[in-house]
């Protein structure tokens, strides 16, 4: 059991990295990676939301959708649950943990439309993960996201001083960087 969980942990965070090999959550990956500080803030918010969302989605799938035999409604149910969950987390943090809200608050609305959250919930179902495995998978995926966004932000901070050809300024050079990072992450495939 522990071994299985460890394999999921490494597999989802490094080997099949959510951004660099599955292209989920590309918008925040490219948009919020200008500074390492904001990037790590976004990363922590994503870890928080995805772990929570995969727990809630797993529970709903197992105890509501399967007993009622309506598993084909999973996409609709998951997206509504995730949207409601993010709203709820935002309200909860604002009221009870204002210090945490101040550091994560700006990132939360960005996560609602993040396809990585829905992607993880759907992958958990597709791979027949139980609730615990699902939560571990969600956590690992989010950690993978955080690792890659922080690395990209670090590279972008250094790159500000470089002389980039005019047409490649802005998005193109960031995409080239992401491509090179993806090559590097291909190296992890020998890990499992």
């Amino acid at each position: 059991m522990v071994k299985d969980l460890l394999i999921i942990l490494i597999g989802s965070s490094l080997v099949s990295n959510v951004v660099l090999s599955q292209f989920l959550g590309l918008c925040p990956f490219l948009g919020v990676s200008k500074k390492t500080k904001t990037a790590s803030g976004m990363g922590i918010a994503v870890i928080f939301v995805i772990t929570l969302a995969s727990l809630v989605a797993g529970v709903i799938y197992k105890y509501i959708l399967i007993p009622c035999n309506i598993t084909y409604l999973q996409t609709i149910v998951f997206i509504l649950v995730i949207a409601a969950l993010v709203q709820f987390v935002e309200m909860f943090l604002k009221k009870y943990i204002p210090s945490l809200y101040e550091s994560l608050g700006v990132y939360l609305p960005l996560i609602t439309t993040n396809c990585a959250v829905l992607g993880v919930a759907l992958t958990n179902v597709q791979k027949n993960y139980g609730i615990i495995e699902g939560v571990v998978n969600g956590f690992a995926t989010a950690v993978g996201f955080t690792i890659s966004i922080v690395i990209l932000a670090g590279i972008r901070e250094k790159m500000e001083y470089n002389d980039v050809p005019e047409s490649f300024k802005g998005m193109p050079i960031v995409l080239v960087t992401a491509g090179l990072m993806a090559i590097a992450f291909c190296g992890f495939s020998g890990l499992l």
Partner: peptide, 25 residues
């Protein structure tokens, strides 16, 4: 083979946005 793997997608999109930038400028 790199072009049908994940990194290739980033490179193709990078070139596409570069061309777009050029047209825009």
């Amino acid at each position: 083979t790199i072009f049908i793997m994940a990194p290739g997608a980033f490179f193709v999109l990078a070139l596409l946005t570069a061309v777009q930038n050029k047209i825009k400028i």
